[in-house]
């Protein structure tokens, strides 16, 4: 707990200039996958908007920057082994790995393709 408090104390020292909120109860891996392709400018520059988002201050995305993403979890399992625990580990360690294919959410909800883009493989 002390470590956690120290971490948050240090985190509060700086402020970013952007505000975004996602409505809903849960966020899955696909959401994270989408989030990681959001172009963000420098930390203290103008507002940015998610790809395809509705932000009024949307501008040209810029390469670079840091995405700071909130995840609410009180996970008891303390492991990075993706084969020994369920989804939450996937969200963190999983971002360093790849899958054969990925689900295509680009046209959701009008079209929901289970078989999405190829990632590291193409189905034949």
């Amino acid at each position: 707990m002390t470590d956690e408090r120290n971490y948050w104390n240090s985190l509060w020292k700086t402020r970013a200039s952007r505000r975004q909120v996602l409505r809903g109860a849960a966020l899955g891996g696909a959401g994270l996958a989408a989030a990681v392709v959001i172009g963000c400018g420098e930390e203290e520059t103008s507002t940015s908007s998610p790809a395809g988002g509705t932000g009024a201050a949307a501008g040209e995305p810029k390469r670079g920057g840091v995405i700071t993403w909130l995840s609410q979890s009180n996970e008891t399992a303390n492991t990075l082994d993706i084969h020994k625990i369920g989804h939450t580990t996937m969200y963190r360690a999983g971002m360093a790995y790849n899958k054969l294919i990925r689900h295509d959410m680009s046209k959701y909800p009008e079209e929901f393709a289970f078989i999405g883009d190829s990632l590291i493989a193409v189905r034949s």
Partner: peptide, 23 residues
């Protein structure tokens, strides 16, 4: 509630979240 204290609040495309959460 956040709208009251965060004037430049932006709502992300809900399709993103819907797709993430799945049906």
């Amino acid at each position: 509630l956040l709208r009251q204290s965060v004037p430049d609040l932006q709502l992300a495309d809900e399709k993103l979240l819907g797709a993430a959460a799945g049906d």
